[in-house]
Write a protein that binds this DNA or RNA. Sequence first.
DNA 1: TAGATTGTTAATCGATTAACAATC
DNA 2: TAGATTGTTAATCGATTAACAATC
Lengths: 208, 208
Amino acid sequence: MANYVSEAVIRRLPGYYRHLRELEAEGVTQISSKDLGERMRQTPSQIRQDINCFGGFGRQGYGYSVSELKQEIGHVLGLDREHTMIIVGAGSIGSAVAHYPTFIREGFRTLALFDTDPARIGTSVNGVRVHSMEELPLFLEEHAVDIAVLAVPGDAAREVFDELARCGVTAVWNFAPVDLHAEERGITVVNVHLADSLQTLSYKIAHR
Amino acid sequence: MANYVSEAVIRRLPGYYRHLRELEAEGVTQISSKDLGERMRQTPSQIRQDINCFGGFGRQGYGYSVSELKQEIGHVLGLDREHTMIIVGAGSIGSAVAHYPTFIREGFRTLALFDTDPARIGTSVNGVRVHSMEELPLFLEEHAVDIAVLAVPGDAAREVFDELARCGVTAVWNFAPVDLHAEERGITVVNVHLADSLQTLSYKIAHR
DNA sequence: TAGATTGTTAATCGATTAACAATC
DNA sequence: TAGATTGTTAATCGATTAACAATC
């Protein structure tokens, strides 16, 4: 378990989890790497290699138990514990995250939103209160927050990110169109970059 | 130009574009692969290799003109033309896309939203009208739509996707938590998978 | 010109795929 | 047992990095 897991494998793990959840919902209890590979458009080899980064969850001649493998990968992803979140920026992206049913179902619980707009402060989004940015430091002192969702406009992102870092936030899910890095400060960041994703679609349209 | 460009390169192109836009805003007119590499945390080699997939835009001893390179990469990404979009699903994700300022600035214009919820039909989101799903086929006949944004719940996604395919949509930006593939039907799909992104963050938190 | 930096080829590194003995 | 399929090692493939001649 202490062995190195490549970024490529990490990115595929949620896909396994999602397909195993689907299989479970379909009532499939057992599956081989061959069949799972067909479903996910991957080679059986890759699936076995990926899974074996975390242990031998299969049985020769049989395959994998869907529910067992789902649970194991869920554990590897940290989905068997609850995560608390705050959302900074109560605009349309922040609001979308607050409403997203999958996050809630998987145990990602939003404690509060924060915004600078007086028209938003004091309102609530999906039952969660919007606070002023001034309340952020005290809130973070008083609550154990696992993840800060950064959903402010690009030109404010670095400043707000620094503020979050000062307040001791250790994990940031960033929707602002800037590259944030802070491994050297011990902060884990995942950048979403929605515009980048749309632009790759634009590229594919232009070159087909 | 007809030569093969790997998926890895395509995924990096929007990052180049974004950083060049930032540099331009800062008033920087010229940059070397060394300096750009430092800024983007990539090797100069990789930057030169990537850029040279599309032509020699640099000058020896000098580097790259920021505005020229930005324009060239923008062209490669297809950002020098307007794209028309429809958004299927007027929930919080669909609404966030309709509001996202970067898309509007880069020439992605939303013509209409579609939804099944009678409470939403007839309203407007950021000035764009929400139609019923029944109006979709006629709308697509009467309007040239480049991209359909799929922002419906996961359990409806495949059905709606098939409907889009039947109506002749050729590019889909998918936010539903299912893997859609339709190269064989000539449809270009980019899957966003927000929950997957959050789960990789969860993984990194669990393993640090 | 001398110095800097590209474009491009070659070397390295890592990720994917294939193969197969182990075993259910 | 015979057949199927894993876990794992070896081979291949592709992507990244290094090197350097060309040249601005």
